[in-house]
Amino acid sequence: MIKVENLVKKYGETTALDGISFEIKEGKFFGLLGPNGAGKTTTISILSTILRPDSGTVRIAGFDLQKDPDQCKRNIGVVTQEIALYNKLSAFDNLMFWGGIYDVPKAELKTRISEILSLFGLTERQHDKIEAYSGGMKRRINIASAMLHRPKVLFMDEPTVGVDPQSRNLIFEVLEKLHKEGITIVYTTHYMEEAERFCDQIGIIDKGKIIAEGTLAELKKSGGIKESIAVTFNEISEEVAKKIGTFLDGEFKFTGNTLHYYSNQIKSDLGKLIVLCNDQGADISNIEIQKVNLETIFLSLTGKQLRD
């Protein structure tokens, strides 16, 4: 559905995109993750046709972005991070306008608006002005306004930022529904749990390059990161720490009063580790299992937290 090859974009001396390439198959939920300034927004801006690349090619739904931008535009919907709605107009009027500019016939558009408002639980409030809506309700309408022309590809840039739990759950329901319907979704987020929950393909971008790409399982494998057990002691002497170390056959490190023990068999090693610590007279105050997740993969690959 989307094929990106050797995309380059420079702003003066700064290289925002340094020849990135990736492919997203039809119906996939693709998460584009990266720290701030990594090139996510530039990538999305190019794919959504408002920024011209310096070089490289992009094909969306079979159309070349450079040669046929109009067809590309008709096949995409963009949910921006900022809520881009007309506050003085009602939700209905907003949706009529945003659907109308894609030439959806009026009667058909009204039907779609009715359906989408019902889906987002906003039928009752459809004739209220947007300015009277809560942040979460506005965000729901913002998403709805990008879906009225039934795009094949939906770009969603942090669609749940600043959203209340009720709206977030409704948005998640819609995302799941859209995914089931086979719409290709390109999703950027800072929320790891969202990416892990929805994305069946993840691209991690840093310094203008795609540094990892694949399913979550593939990323876990390729990163070579092991799960770990963090044992925190109330107090531990250097001598006791050394003794414990002599009995451990895997990778470990002490940071202050905390022992980090890395293993591929966390469950079976957990019991042994507790017994060992007790036998050496160490006073355990807390035990935590640190699983491999997107956050640890991201940290390992970029050296930064996802929220940096």
Binding site: I50, I83, A84
Partner: peptide, 13 residues
Amino acid sequence: EEGTLKKLLFSPL
């Protein structure tokens, strides 16, 4: 300023 111009540019207009 409100982002609607950008959103208009995503459309075929």
